[in-house]
Design a protein around this nucleic acid. Structure first.
Lengths: 226, 226
DNA sequence: GTCTATATAATGATAGAC
DNA sequence: GTCTATCATTATATAGAC
C-alpha cells in the first residue's frame, strides 16, 4: 500500500552511521523494550558502544532521536494515506509493510512505557477520529453523537488501548519476537465483527441507562434551583 | 464499600516481616514500575536489602509473591462484590478504598509490563463480562450479540485497554505519583456518557458496514462451491 | 568518525557475624 | 531472623588513541 518515502529511503548500507544506529535502536527497543542496554544496540548496528553515545550524547538522547524519527515516519505515512482512503486503520496499513514493522513495534513499546511520544501520538489519534467522525456525519454514514469531541476521545482510548492490550496479550501467549503483521491480522479477525455489530445495533436494549446517566450529568452541572 | 477482609487484615505493625516487605514491594513497584531496585523496596519496608532476598530468594521471587497476593486480593474482593451488586466496575470500587490503592497501581503496572498476572487477570475480566452480558440478556436489558464470547472478549480488550491507556495518559499529564481515585473518577466523567450513548444508540447510521463484514466472514469460512 | 579502554555508579545476589 | 559487608555483574558515560 505504501511506497518507500523520502523518510525511509535507501537500504541499510546507504544510510549514514548515525541513521543506522538510530534504526538499530528502534528495532532493538521495539523487540526487547527500553530496558535494553546500549551495548545490545551497538552490536545490532555493528558499531562500538562508545560510538552510540558519541552521536546521541546519552541513552535518553538516543531515545529522543528514535521518538522523533518514528513520529516523522507516521506523519509522512498519514499524509500519504489521506490521498488513498481505505477501510483499514493507518496502523494496520503500516504493519503490513515489512519496512515499517520495527517502527510499529517501537511505537507500541512507547505506548506501554508512556513517554512523550505516547502523548503526542494519542492526541493525533483523537484528531484523526474526530475528523473521521465528522466526515461520516456529513455523508450520513455516522449517527451524530451528543458530544463529538468527547466521543472521539473516548473511542481513541478504547481502540488505542484495546489494540495495545491485545498485542500485550498476544506477546504473552506467543513466545519469541512478535510478528506484528500476524498479530494485527488476528486482531482484525477477532475484533472487527463484534465491534461493528455493537456500533451498528448497539448493546443496550433500551435507553434507560443512557437517560439516567445523562440526567445525572445535567443536574450536576446545573444544580436544581428553579 | 468493602470492609477489611482476612487477606488484608491488620495494620502495618501487626504483619509479619515477610508480609511487610511484600506490601512495601507492591507499593513501590506500583509507584515507580518494575525497574526499581531491591534497595528502594528494602528502604520502604524499613529493612536491609539482604533481608529481601533472604525471604524471597530473588527479585523475581518477590515479584511472584506480589503477583500472587494481588491476585488473591482481587479474587476476595470479587467474591465480596458479587453479593453487593453495583453499577460501578470492580476496579472503580476497589480504587475508592485507600487500602487497595497500592494494589491497583501494582495491577496497572502489571498490565503494562505484561507479566503472567496480566494474562490471568484479563481472562478473569473476559469471564466477568461474559457473565454480565448473559445476565443482562436474560433480564432483557442487553440486546443479544451474534457471538457472546467474542463480544465479551472484544469488550474486555477495549475497556481494559482503554482504562490502561487513560491512566497512562493521566500519569504523563500529572506529575508526581498518580492518585488513582482522582484518575478513575475523571475516567468515569469523560468516558461513561459517550460510551453509554454509543452502546445505546449505536454509532453507524445503517447496517451496511456490518452486513458487508458479516458477508465477508461467512464467505471466507465457507468457500463458494455450491 | 570510529575504536579501545576505562571511570563511575548501580544492580542482583551472597556470605558470615550477631 | 536480621544485619553489615562484599562480590560479581552490568549499566551509562567518558577519555584518549588512531
Amino acid at each position: 500500500m505504501f511506497k518507500r518515502s523520502a523518510v525511509s529511503e535507501g537500504s541499510a548500507a546507504d544510510l549514514s552511521t548515525r541513521a543506522r544506529i538510530r534504526d538499530a535502536a528502534i528495532a532493538v527497543f521495539g523487540e526487547q523494550g527500553f530496558g535494553v542496554g546500549v551495548r545490545a544496540i551497538a552490536q545490532a548496528a555493528g558499531v562500538s558502544p562508545g560510538l552510540v553515545n558519541h552521536h546521541f550524547g546519552s541513552k535518553d538522547g538516543l531515545r529522543e532521536a528514535c521518538d522523533d524519527h518514528v513520529r516523522e515516519l507516521v506523519r509522512a505515512a498519514k499524509m500519504e494515506s489521506m490521498q488513498r482512503p481505505s477501510s483499514a486503520t493507518l496502523l494496520q496499513q503500516l504493519a503490513e509493510i515489512e519496512e515499517f514493522a520495527p517502527a510499529m513495534a517501537y511505537l507500541m513499546r512507547s505506548m506501554q512505557a508512556g513517554g512523550p511520544l505516547m502523548v503526542s501520538f494519542f492526541e493525533h489519534m483523537v484528531e484523526d477520529i474526530e475528523q473521521y467522525l465528522a466526515t461520516g456525519i456529513a455523508s450520513g454514514a455516522i449517527r451524530p453523537p451528543r458530544d463529538l469531541k468527547a466521543t472521539a476521545r473516548c473511542l481513541a482510548y478504547n481502540h488505542g488501548g484495546g489494540m495495545m492490550l491485545f498485542l500485550q496479550h498476544y506477546e504473552a501467549a506467543h513466545p519469541g519476537p512478535v510478528d506484528f503483521r500476524k498479530a494485527l491480522r488476528e486482531y482484525s479477525d477477532q475484533m472487527l465483527l463484534p465491534m461493528v455489530e455493537v456500533y451498528t445495533h448497539g448493546l443496550l436494549a433500551n435507553s434507560m441507562v443512557y437517560d439516567t446517566v445523562l440526567a445525572q450529568r445535567q443536574s450536576a452541572e446545573q444544580p436544581p434551583n428553579t
